Simulated scan of single mutants.
Amino acid sequence: MNYEAVIFDLDGTLIDSMWVWEQIDIEFLQKKGYVIDEAAINQIEGAGFTETAEFFKKHFNLAMSVEEIKETWREMAIKMYVERVDLKNGAKEFLEFLKAHNVKMAIATSNGREIVEAILEKHDIAKFFETVVTSCDVEKGKPHPFVYLKTAEILEVAPSRCLVFEDVPNGIIAGKNAGMTVFGIEDAQREDAKRRAKDLCDRWVMDYNEVIDILKE
């Protein structure tokens, strides 16, 4: 192992959940009489939970406070995550592999803390992670590097000794801007976004079973 710490994004990276937020956006906006547009989708990629709520309030001129928007999303998301979202293929085995090699683990996510805690509890994986840092804990979300730099600081590991797992371009950019090695992992997303993600990351993998084989080399 050439790394002292492994830091995971959450949605689409550790869990198969990218469809969740698309569905929440659609259902949330339908109730308000709006339809999600391409400009909005591009604007919120990698943005933090609070940043996204602020954007939606302004972009769609919503008569709700940012906190009300966030609370509505939390309720919708927790139900979907707990009932319908699974871990990525090989994820649990990979966490066990890292633990056996005394590698520190953490989550650095744009998602909200309550949602993260619900996911970790459902899958019984909280015990693997030394810390969870969200984009709401730092100045700006991805593609800015702050969430990854803060995580490395808490872990007391130099960024150059951290391996990051991401799935979307802005997340990969955030990890690279933090001075970390970034592996991209296969996920369901727009083909143009996937091509860009593959170009940006240090290595692209299909699942965590492949990663275990790579790190054993």
Score class of each variant (00 low, 15 high):
205 V>Q: 09
194 K>I: 06
56 F>P: 01
122 K>P: 11
181 T>V: 15
51 E>R: 03
150 K>V: 03
101 H>M: 06
74 R>W: 02
143 P>C: 08
155 L>I: 06
24 I>L: 15
71 E>N: 11
197 A>F: 04
79 K>Q: 09
11 D>M: 00
9 D>H: 13
212 I>S: 13
141 G>R: 04
33 G>P: 02
117 E>P: 02
69 I>M: 03
92 K>H: 11
67 E>A: 14
55 F>C: 03
57 K>I: 10
7 I>K: 05
22 E>W: 07
81 Y>M: 00
215 L>E: 09
163 L>A: 13
68 E>Q: 15
170 N>G: 05
48 G>S: 13
63 A>H: 15
54 E>I: 13
64 M>R: 09
94 F>L: 08
196 R>M: 13
153 E>S: 11
217 E>Q: 14
100 A>K: 15
110 S>H: 01
127 K>M: 10
162 C>D: 08
31 K>D: 11
123 H>S: 13
136 C>L: 04
168 V>C: 07
195 R>P: 00
210 E>V: 10
131 T>G: 04
82 V>W: 01
158 A>Y: 11
176 K>E: 09
168 V>E: 00
151 T>Q: 01
45 E>T: 14
100 A>W: 08
119 I>Y: 02
9 D>K: 02
181 T>N: 08
174 A>D: 05
50 T>H: 05
135 S>F: 00
190 R>T: 03
150 K>T: 11
7 I>E: 07
79 K>M: 02
8 F>H: 05
208 Y>S: 00
14 L>T: 01
162 C>Y: 11
153 E>I: 02
178 A>Y: 06
32 K>G: 01
174 A>I: 03
65 S>Q: 03
51 E>K: 01
149 L>I: 09
138 V>I: 03
210 E>Y: 05
192 D>Q: 07
132 V>F: 04
204 W>A: 12
3 Y>E: 09
215 L>I: 11
189 Q>H: 08
24 I>V: 15
5 A>G: 10
6 V>M: 14
185 I>R: 02
127 K>A: 13
70 K>E: 13
207 D>I: 12
157 V>F: 07
54 E>K: 15
166 E>Y: 12
119 I>D: 01
35 V>I: 15
61 N>V: 10
9 D>S: 12
107 I>L: 14
101 H>Y: 12
167 D>W: 09
147 V>M: 06
196 R>Y: 06
89 N>M: 05
183 F>T: 02
156 E>V: 07
112 G>S: 13
48 G>W: 07
115 I>S: 07
97 F>D: 03
193 A>I: 08
54 E>G: 02
106 A>D: 06
123 H>M: 13
13 T>I: 11
163 L>P: 04
168 V>K: 09
114 E>P: 01
179 G>I: 10
55 F>M: 10
29 L>M: 08
211 V>S: 05
182 V>H: 04
178 A>F: 08
179 G>V: 10
138 V>D: 00
131 T>H: 06
49 F>K: 00
1 M>W: 05
136 C>Y: 04
144 H>Q: 13
33 G>I: 07
24 I>G: 02
52 T>E: 01
79 K>V: 08
158 A>N: 15
95 L>Y: 06
26 I>R: 15
182 V>K: 10
18 M>H: 02
121 E>P: 02
184 G>L: 11
133 V>Q: 10
94 F>R: 01
181 T>A: 10
199 D>G: 04
129 F>A: 07
4 E>L: 12
54 E>S: 12
49 F>V: 01
2 N>H: 09
21 W>H: 09
39 A>F: 06
44 I>T: 04
77 A>N: 04
123 H>Q: 13
